[in-house]
Design a binder for these strands. Structure first.
Lengths: 226, 226
DNA sequence: CGCGCCATTGACTCTGGTCAACGCTAGTGG
DNA sequence: CCACTAGCGTTGACCAGAGTCAATGGCGCG
């Protein structure tokens, strides 16, 4: 039936702020949508007609400089909300890394609903604050950490985030390309590749297709938090 | 009399969300406080007992790595709000760059007030979203821009922010040290110094005590947005 | 006057970027 | 079924932008 009631990410998404009654209200406002890998959800500066609740998949959020340099500002996973700012234009671009399922809402519809639900606004604010906190961590990473530390911190944060959405395994899936990782960490694809090789040689990880096996988690953690 | 009614930053702070009646309410909850230059407002991970509305001065917000590397995640000016996340522990450290005046609120008092004022929460959310947007811009700067571009972007953003709080002049005050600028831009003090010298030699700026004179704004802007 | 702090400048180093070759794998078409 | 190709990832050789280390300068303050 595909309703909010049996939504897999209900407990961890903004919807956890809602009562059963409200859940069915918002259910009637939502448009479940699927995006194939590599397709665009929205682009920077374009009118923000919709907001999104990701229920499945991985989305990259990024900004481009005029000459084509790209900075990925975050990867959004199941449970994450896109369009937190509720502004009339998107501040970043978003496209699906893997096949992705979302609950889409017209922004006007969502903000109208929001005006009647202060506790949902509170939850949205919590989400925005959390995003801000992650962004600040990422600033530390980009401004002050070495390539090794960046890769380690990236792996650790993915481990934690995947754990939160139910995926716990010594093998960490990396659905995004090396280029995506490089553009997230402020490195080049070659440096990412070399650093993986170096960590593999030291026994910290084993590189497998579409992921890495974390064979020495304490070592990675030490590098990440140094 | 020093009340919210005649607050210089009322119009641009979170307080702009409040009616005259509410303004006098919050007035009675506020503790006007002064911090001398170089003193600490709060430190990372310590219990967040208070939130702050800056009415005058400049505050640096930063994170430290265990080995002492520092990343400044932002400079807060008059009108800015500290403690947006309303979490029980501070996520960053804050200290005064210049002598600073704030309206301080006990966090519990503020959140209680907030629970009765959804429009203030909305305003707070707007502030948090704006902060997030600035953080994303800073990620682009730290991840993908050259030293020249970082300095230029830094100067341009300061020009805009000072303009918003009423300071418009070709001479831009730089109350923070070179070390602060370096730690904000992910550079070293030497690179900051060299880049200022280089821009000065090219005629874009003149370095003056505690500031720079922007003698070729278009040139700076071009570098900043490239 | 002299001390100390901050900023500037120079010489040299090094981390990570650039450029280029090569390999692997999946998908295509003969 | 296998040869060919395209795209992604890895590796190597070399390079350059920014970092490091060190000396010097300028200024405020005791």
């Amino acid at each position: 039936m595909n309703s909010c009631t049996d939504c897999r990410v209900r407990g961890i998404s903004v919807c956890s702020a809602l009562e059963p009654q409200e859940l069915s209200e918002i259910d009637s406002l939502s448009h479940p949508t699927t995006y194939a890998a590599k397709t665009t959800l929205f682009s920077q500066d374009e009118p923000a007609n919709a907001v999104f609740n990701i229920t499945e998949g991985v989305v990259r959020l990024y900004k481009l400089l005029p000459d084509g340099r790209r900075q990925i500002v975050g990867f959004a996973l199941a449970g994450d909300f896109l369009g937190l700012a509720l502004l009339d234009h998107y501040g970043v671009s978003a496209d699906a890394v893997t096949d992705t399922k979302v609950c889409r809402f017209a922004r006007s519809t969502f903000t109208t609903f929001l005006d009647r639900k202060p506790h949902l606004l509170r939850r949205l604010h919590e989400f925005a604050s959390h995003e801000l906190s992650l962004a600040q961590d990422q600033m530390v990473l980009l401004g002050r950490r070495t390539a090794d530390e960046r890769i380690a911190a990236f792996l650790m944060s993915l481990v934690e985030r995947f754990a939160r959405i139910g995926h716990t395994s010594i093998t960490l899936p990396l659905p995004m390309s090396r280029q995506d990782i490089a553009d997230f960490l402020g490195l080049t694809i070659e440096t990412v590749s070399r650093t993986f090789s170096k960590l593999a040689k030291s026994g910290a990880i084993v590189v497998v297709p579409d992921g890495v096996r974390l064979t020495n988690l304490p070592q990675i953690k030490a590098l990440a938090t140094k």
